[in-house]
């Protein structure tokens, strides 16, 4: 019969209780962090929100001298730069994912895939300074004059490309953001395409479909949810990105129709002005911007995660 030392056993039980509580506490801490973030932002933003009311979100004015603040310009800049970034990065990322899953010779697959993932690991400040020192001058000298001369005169779209070629501005920030988000979108889409069962693709080929036709009629419909989730997750990152845009956005609290004009985003406003903000209303307004960003990105990311979880569950079911 096995002999059990009762003191030893009691000690083991105590260790178990301690360990289990520790892990549970750590897990709950995660929830507390999110709650803490929400609450502290709310508290910090309260003075500004109660002072300006709902008008805070609809006013363009941003004047530290007269202590008048409105979030419209930063919100506009955040949305427009993210939109430009997604318009550029999603098709390109789709193309890269397509290449990696269908076309790439096996020898290259690993290295190109790794290159994409390493690009995703590069911190955003690097993209920021690259944008400032390399991309902005490039756009200023070669691309923007072309846009102003050739597209500027066209009636409707032309309004987007007016004004002097500063180099920095909303468009440049959008492009830098696009380059930053691209590896993430490409990697996510590639992972989604990899979950398509080979038998399903072979069924498409079996009907005499070309590679593109299999992708368009079988792979994409099958991966719709995953693709959308990945895109939304990328959008969430783009909306919250600070360092990539702060260098090149121009930091002007203005809304202009031209994409070549300087503007500002929520995160770059906070990054640029927070440490120098004098006065409670100024600081509180910046925190209020942070709260808005938190709400927007929370919603987008939550929806994206929900979609990706649905895909995970389906991928695990047999086919």
């Amino acid at each position: 019969m096995a002999i059990i030392d009762s003191r030893h056993a009691a000690r083991q039980l105590i260790y178990e209780r301690v360990f289990r509580s520790a892990t549970l506490a750590a897990a709950i801490l995660v929830l507390l962090i999110l709650g803490g973030v929400a609450l502290s932002l709310l508290r910090g933003a309260w003075p500004a929100l109660s002072h300006f009311g709902f008008g805070f979100v609809t006013r363009e004015i941003w004047n530290p001298v007269t202590d008048e603040y409105g979030a419209l310009a930063p919100i506009y800049g955040t949305v427009v730069t993210s939109l430009i970034a997604m318009l550029l990065a999603v098709p390109t990322g789709f193309g890269i994912a397509l290449f990696l899953t269908e076309l790439c010779p096996p020898v290259l697959k690993r290295s190109i895939g790794t290159a994409v993932e390493l690009l995703a690991a590069v911190p955003s400040i690097i993209f920021g300074i690259w944008g400032l020192f390399v991309l902005a001058p490039l756009l200023q000298r070669h691309v923007q004059p072309w846009l102003i001369d050739h597209i500027g005169p066209i009636p409707m779209i032309g309004k987007l490309f007016q004004g002097p070629p500063f180099g920095i501005g909303v468009l440049t920030a959008g492009v830098v953001l696009a380059v930053m988000v691209l590896p993430f979108i490409a990697a996510t889409m590639r992972d989604v395409f990899d979950t398509v069962p080979p038998m399903l693709k072979e069924s498409g080929y079996g009907l005499g479909a070309t590679t593109w036709e299999v992708i368009w009629h079988v792979v994409v419909p099958h991966s719709r949810v995953g693709m959308l989730g990945g895109i939304m997750l990328g959008l969430g990152r783009a909306l919250g990105e600070t360092m990539a845009v702060t260098f090149v956005i121009g930091n002007a609290h203005r809304i202009s129709t031209s994409l070549l004009a300087p503007g500002t985003t929520i995160s770059s406003s906070i990054a640029n002005e927070f440490t120098e903000a004098v006065g409670d209303l100024y600081t509180s307004s910046l925190i209020a911007l942070g709260l808005l960003l938190f709400l927007i990105t929370f919603a987008v990311i939550a929806i994206a995660q929900a979609m990706l979880r649905r895909l995970e569950r389906r991928a695990l079911s047999p086919l």
């Binding site: 995660v30 973030v37 969430g236 990152r237 600070t242 995160s267 938190f294 990105t297 929370f298 990311i301």
Partner: peptide, 11 residues
């Protein structure tokens, strides 16, 4: 946790 993972670090 997944939301915190992708949340803006400035927040």
């Amino acid at each position: 946790n997944d939301i915190l993972l992708s949340a803006p670090s400035i927040i």
